[in-house]
């Protein structure tokens, strides 16, 4: 019986979850994170998991399961109510001001909607990744950036296959291209881990596959640690080495890809929604 089948058979989502062992060393450890929003809506109710260096991990769950909130809590874009998050060796909840910014700078965050600055070129948007490294005003616009930074940004665009579109305005790129520019921005950051919040949700299927393949390639080729949320069981099983499923704000499944199968995961989804 697979972990998902076991969970479905037991019909006990609030019980002890199946645990998948992260690869050592651990770069992200989430322990007992809880978060409720005004009005008393509880989104996270004690979620715990860990991600090891170089892993590609999918975070699954029905709408409202707490995937996006959990991912944003990891970077303190949303403040959790309680629990502990150790990110790249630091207790992220204990950091403030410049130290929090410095820790965030080591993490790439890819949003559902690329979140590029629309009127700036693809190259300028990629350059913004260098803001994470304290480049300051030199990384605001490609026109005023030093030669070394421009070359590095162009190289990042090249790594996502968009060097030819460096001068194009972000609002004139396709959805898939825009998301690839967002990935290039994370590469420019020299991020040690990339968190991606439904990175292909706003893309058509072909562009979505293209972006997921890019993440998988960067993970395999460059050892980039990658944690992404998705609704797609196919993406979770196709591009992640491990899948974590949330239900009612807690981790219900945490298992390596080899132990999961699409049928039981779909069943889990149906029961969760």
């Amino acid at each position: 019986m697979t972990p998902a089948e076991a969970l479905v058979a037991a019909e006990a989502p609030m019980g002890a979850p199946m645990r998948g062992a992260p690869v050592e060393p651990v770069v992200l450890a989430v322990e007992d994170i809880r978060k409720s929003f005004p009005g008393g809506r509880r989104v996270l109710a004690g979620a715990s998991f860990a991600v090891g260096k170089g892993e590609a991990v999918a975070l699954l769950g029905a709408n409202g399961a707490g995937k996006s909130t959990l991912l944003r809590c990891c970077l303190r874009l949303i403040e959790p109510d309680s629990g502990r998050i150790e990110l790249l060796g630091a207790d992220i909840r204990a950091l403030r001001g410049a130290r929090l910014r410095a820790q965030r700078a080591r993490v790439g965050f890819v949003f559902q909607r690329h979140n590029l600055v629309p009127r700036l070129s693809a190259l300028s948007n990629v350059l913004h990744g260098a803001l994470a490294r304290g480049a300051g005003a030199a990384a605001w616009f490609q026109a005023t950036a030093p030669k070394r930074l421009r070359a590095e940004a162009l190289d990042c665009l090249d790594r996502v296959g968009l060097a030819d579109s460096a001068a194009m305005r972000a609002d004139r790129l396709s959805g898939g291209q825009s998301q690839r520019v967002a990935v290039a921005r994370a590469l420019m950051q020299r991020a040690e881990i990339v968190l991606a919040d439904e990175p292909v949700a706003s893309l058509d299927p072909a562009a979505g596959e293209e972006v997921m393949a890019l993440f998988a390639e960067l993970n395999a080729r460059e050892g980039l640690t990658f944690l992404f949320t998705t609704h797609s069981i196919e993406h979770a099983l196709g591009y992640a080495r491990r899948a974590i499923a949330l239900k009612d704000g807690r981790v219900a499944i945490d298992a390596p890809r080899a132990e999961l199968d699409p049928v039981s995961l779909r069943d889990f989804y149906e029961r969760s929604s």
Binding site: R101, R104, A105, N115, V117, H128, G129, L131, G136, A186
Partner: peptide
Amino acid sequence: RAPQEALGAIGAGRSSVIAAA
């Protein structure tokens, strides 16, 4: 606000967010 949030998420300071986004 989304591009501003993106720059904030990578650790950009307030002046960079204002100037670049």
